[in-house]
């Protein structure tokens, strides 16, 4: 395969993973107005629960049962976290700050809880598609291609949900004006829970993607969370299309930079570019300045 092809493939693959993580973060920020530092550990939980359901050593369920089940359980965990960590502080002036520390604390609890339950030994879940596919001169793993193909579909569905269904529109309405929503009788509490649960499920899906090509460890969510943060800073957290675009751009940037500048300088370069972008456009590249979804 040509250099260009390899760079593009890597960009699409990394971009898909970043987008999957970043959209959940943006979803929680827009609807609830807090930043969820549990997002990385929710991804870890998704991967470990999928392992628990699918691995022959554990429950050994078939993939098509196990994976949705893992997503559901993580969504439920996200729902519970929201009720415990964020709900009690809503309405306080310092809710953003308090939510940072409560979600950080919970992420520490869950990370070590994962270590406690599943142990430190690296695990992996079977890839979504096991084969490699010949693409030009070289082979590409089908799992990577599957991720590249599935991600836009899932994100498209999320977009449709937010733009074409009543509940999705309600979520966006809460994002725009919570007081007015309460006045017209919308169940804001339930919508918060829904946003958090949906974000958690997206994180879990990203975890399943990761677990299929890398060894899992309780710490696996930290780096993707950092990257997702970069993506939402870059794309703006005011909507979900901004982060999606930004995810692919950053994937491309990294692929190009790793090839031409080198592996070690790429993260530093990325953060430097990020800071410059924020100085010029504090609300992100693709955001209008107001807080609103899609």
């Amino acid at each position: 395969m040509t250099v260009l092809g390899q760079i593009l493939l890597s960009a699409l693959f990394q971009g898909s993973l970043y987008a999957m993580m970043a959209v959940g973060l943006a979803l929680v920020w827009t609807t609830i107005g807090v930043f969820n530092f549990c997002h990385g550990v929710l991804m870890t939980l998704g991967a470990y629960l999928a392992w628990q359901f699918v691995d022959p050593e554990a429950l050994g369920l078939p993939m098509f049962v196990a994976l949705p089940l893992a997503l559901l359980v993580v969504a439920a965990i996200g729902f519970a976290l929201q009720a415990l960590l964020i709900r009690p502080f809503i309405g306080r002036g310092d809710v953003v700050l308090v939510a940072v520390i409560t979600t950080l604390a919970a992420s520490s609890i869950l990370k070590n809880g994962t270590l406690l339950v599943w142990g430190p030994r690296p695990k992996s879940i079977p890839p979504l598609a096991p084969d490699t596919i010949a693409l030009g001169a070289s082979n590409v793993s089908a799992h990577q291609l599957a991720i590249i193909a599935i991600t836009p579909v899932v994100l498209g569905l999320v977009w449709l949900f937010l733009n074409r269904t009543r509940v999705g529109l309600a979520l966006r309405a809460v994002a725009q004006n919570e007081d007015a929503c309460q006045l017209v009788g919308m169940n804001v509490t339930a919508l918060y829970a829904l946003a958090f649960g949906l974000a958690a499920a997206l994180a879990a899906l990203a975890g399943i993607f990761f677990g299929g090509f890398k060894f899992m460890s309780p710490d696996m969510g930290t780096e993707p969370l950092t990257k997702a943060l970069v993506v939402v800073i870059f794309g703006g957290i005011a909507n979900i299309t901004g982060p999606i675009l930004a995810a692919y751009i950053i994937g491309l940037f990294e692929a190009v930079s790793i090839y031409y500048v080198g592996f070690y300088w790429t993260p530093a370069l990325l953060f430097a570019v990020l800071i410059v972008v924020l100085m010029v456009r504090p609300e992100g590249l693709f955001a209008r300045s107001s807080r609103g979804l899609a």
């Binding site: 920020w29 930043f35 953003v96 940072v100 943060l229 970069v230 939402v232 800073i233 957290i237 953060f271 990020l274 800071i275 924020l278 504090p282 609300e283």
Partner: peptide, 9 residues
């Protein structure tokens, strides 16, 4: 939140 994000970066 932008201060959080940028200082983190």
């Amino acid at each position: 939140i932008y201060v959080v994000l940028l200082s983190f970066a």
